[in-house]
Design a protein around this nucleic acid. Structure first.
Lengths: 125, 125
DNA sequence: TCGATAGTTCAATGAATCTTGAACATAGGG
DNA sequence: CCCTATGTTCAAGATTCATTGAACTATCGA
């Protein structure tokens, strides 16, 4: 559990995998919330997403989001801090992430996008 | 077989379904080829995609593309003419389709995007 | 009317996916 | 040093998905 999880390099990011990752409502909500958080701190803990599903199911979705290159995990003590790989995504597929995010924002009422917690208070490390 | 297949209304188009549709390489290739074709005629027959897979598998993917609102089918005799629902997509999720298409174009070598037939000669009806 | 063509529909199979709970590993606080 | 909190991993289940071939429908042309 101590090693940093595997992430693909920028060039290894594949379009179908990215789209497939974003097509799951829970993962879309995770990415959406991470994007919202970028204005404040750019990182969130796993437990910040507990409203979306159970721990073990979230770990499964986190793994998929890492494997497809959408986000990165930094291990710090017993916490994992996740952040969007925005620069890599933008270099690889310009405009794609923002187009998906603004589409998701437009449909916020229909999607399980983080009911309640708009922005999360941050005070860490 | 004579009735026009079901299509969702503009407002019924859902983001996760659209992304899921586009995450399949064959469907992405279909959409990509339809977009290429827009410069010439905006419509293609089912058989124009026969390089991608067999007839019955293509019918399966066409159905998914219709159900999620990405394309429309017009029945004309024994042919079906398909075209992108670009205006509806643009109204619903502005910029999304173009972002995906330009991302696909950037990765054209990695994707099964219509080997060979760049643009298809059109002379119909 | 007969035959060929264009697509769909159906059934079946194997693969992949999502979800859950239990067990596990690791770090931090008393 | 124990106890707790944070996440991961594993096994199992149910569901969905992609692919294939065969059967079918409907239209057009000779």
């Amino acid at each position: 559990m101590s090693r940093t999880p595997h992430h693909p390099t920028r060039e290894q990011i594949e379009l179908p995998m990215v789209l497939d990752c974003l097509s799951d409502p829970i993962r879309l909500a995770i990415v959406y919330q991470l994007a919202q958080q970028e204005r404040v701190s750019s990182e969130l803990r796993c437990s910040d997403f507990s409203a979306l599903s159970g721990k073990s199911n979230l770990a499964y979705h986190f793994a998929k989001l890492r494997e497809c290159g959408l986000m990165q995990t930094r291990v710090a003590g017993t916490n994992r801090f996740m952040r969007l790989r925005r620069e890599d995504l933008e270099a690889r597929f310009p405009g794609l992430l923002d187009a998906v995010l603004s589409s998701a924002a437009k449909d916020a009422e229909r999607l399980p996008l983080v009911s309640g917690c708009d922005l999360i208070e941050v005070d860490r490390k």
